[in-house]
Write a protein that binds this DNA or RNA. Sequence first.
DNA 1: CACCATGTTCCTTG
DNA 2: CCAAGGAACATGGT
Length: 287
Amino acid sequence: MPELPEVEVLVRHLAPMLEGKTIRGVQVRRERVLRPTTEAGLKRELRGAKFVGVIRRGKFLLFTLRRSTGRSTFTLLGHLGMTGRMFLQPVNAPVAKHAAVFLALGKLDFVFEDTRYFGRFTLDTGPIKLLGPEPFGDEFTPGYFAEALRRSAQPIKVKLLDQSLVAGVGNIYASEALFDARISPRISARRLTREQIERLRRSIRNVLSAAIVFGSTVPLDWSGASRGDGLFYYGQYGGVPGVYEERLQVYDRAGHPCPRCGASIKRIVQAARSTFFCPRCQCGGSG
DNA sequence: CACCATGTTCCTTG
DNA sequence: CCAAGGAACATGGT
């Protein structure tokens, strides 16, 4: 469930349930997701520790924990990769097939489950130091954005996936933001005009915040026990018929009419990932 | 069987 | 040294 909006909604959901809870036991079923932390190391740090806060940074979840001994705190870093999920369930609930880590919290278990095991659940906080500004943060200014884009010859769509440029935009919302800004995904980042850059910055913010609102408004089934697994990202929302279909404008909609001009949405491949856009609205010029 | 998938990192190439 | 492109990671859906 991986881009910024999905992680934000998850963090808001988890924070009030985790804060104040003490970790009484740790079970690791897939050590790979801890990399480079070891199972022994994770258990040593987490046992007896208490959750004091949960925040988001880019697509990462940062769990702040207080050690049972003393007052010091430390950070547990989570990342959902492509298919990760986190939820609480009763102690005796059935074990998810790809559950990677369980934290015993008393009556409930906290579960990190990830089908493909690309996600992370680790004490290594190094990755967050590489992130660019938050899209909603004060540092994500037009000046910063313009300066960063000026130094890149990559297509703008590819550049938006660079987490050191701006943190949290992924493959779905990169296409959506460029559609909203009426900018061709193929334009070299350095060739964007000042006006396009400011429009894109606003579109990134608008598209992400609209998705957060959507995810906060819709009923979600976090453990996904039922088939209509409630996580609201692409392809997963199984709630009100028609709602999901109307949410994304271009992503995964090749061959459908553009909601703005009616032209056929196109799919292209950039940096080995799919990009969706309207060849008429997003012709690369001033829009 | 073929191809596709919300992400990141590492390796190679230029 | 840097940028860019591709493969790898691992599993499942269509």
